[in-house]
């Protein structure tokens, strides 16, 4: 029997709920991984027809083009407020926001804190790439000390602009359903991140309060690093400031 004659089965293929169009993301940017994981989780949970996404402002502003689910587009930073409005009116729907770090951790800090403190029953997918991607790589609250960006050309001075914003410290007092941080490079990290996303959606649908998954993502273009170097930077430098793991609602260790 030649190889061509051996029967095969598909063990992995692109999720149906992802639209067929090509994303506008740069090569090596892992917004696409986050999209795929959310798509897979929604498919596996049977929530595709029940889901309403809230897009934010940033590189993922056009996320609704890439998913075959209902979406609304929020103003910059306001996605958790918009998701609150939707979830309160349609309490049986799976309502999630998809936000970047400029959106959530800077301009939208008020809205995410408000939603978290109310225990709003939504899922928040937070993609952290340590800069403002869409506007061309400016400094964000998540930018690492010393990291050069287009608005911190000498490297971020933490004494003047603050240490990287870490949600698990900031929100330690909130009664959240789930709070975890994963990374979107390397198969083991990505598989773990998918489990986190799954857990977040499950706990959210179980009305356990706001469920939040932060996903570290490389930004090769604005970090001025080739995709493979950007991956290394994420694993070697970014995780020093942003430890991976579950901080609330995780399995007992």
């Amino acid at each position: 029997m030649t190889l061509a004659e051996v029967p095969t089965r598909i063990v992995y293929s692109r999720p149906e709920v992802l639209d067929k169009r090509v994303t506008h993301y740069c090569p090596g940017c892992t917004h696409g991984v986050a999209h795929r994981l959310v798509a897979e989780v929604l498919e596996e949970m049977g929530e595709v027809e029940n889901a309403i996404g809230v897009a934010s402002v940033g590189c993922s502003v056009f996320i609704y083009n890439y998913f075959n689910i209902d979406f609304v587009e929020a103003a910059h930073g306001r996605a958790p407020a918009m998701a609150t409005g939707i979830k309160r009116l349609l309490p049986d729907r799976t309502v999630f926001t998809y936000q970047g770090d400029g959106d959530l951790a800077s301009i939208g800090m008020g809205e995410i804190v408000g939603a978290a403190s109310r225990g709003e029953k939504i899922t928040v997918i937070f993609l952290n790439n340590a800069n403002y991607g869409m506007t061309g790589g400016q400094m964000a609250p998540t930018t690492l000390p010393g990291q050069k960006t287009t608005s911190s050309p000498y490297g971020k001075d933490a004494a003047r602009f603050g240490k990287p914003f870490r949600i698990e410290d900031a929100y330690s007092g909130f009664d959240m359903g789930y709070l975890a941080r994963g990374a979107l490079v390397g198969a083991a990290n990505i598989n773990r991140a998918k489990k986190m996303i799954r857990k977040a959606f499950e706990k959210h649908m179980d009305n356990q309060g706001l469920c939040y998954v932060e996903l570290l993502s490389p930004c090769p273009t604005n970090w001025n690093l080739a995709p493979l170097k950007a991956k290394d930077f994420l694993l070697e430098e970014m995780t020093k400031h942003f430890p991976l793991g579950e901080f609330k609602g995780g399995d007992a260790k």
């Binding site: 929020a74 407020a81 918009m82 409005g85 408000g114």
Partner: peptide, 17 residues
């Protein structure tokens, strides 16, 4: 809401339903 900014954006989401 946490602010008028939050309130109007909640209305925005709710109006979308």
């Amino acid at each position: 809401a946490e602010s008028e900014l939050g309130a109007i954006n909640m209305v925005y989401g709710a109006a979308c339903t």
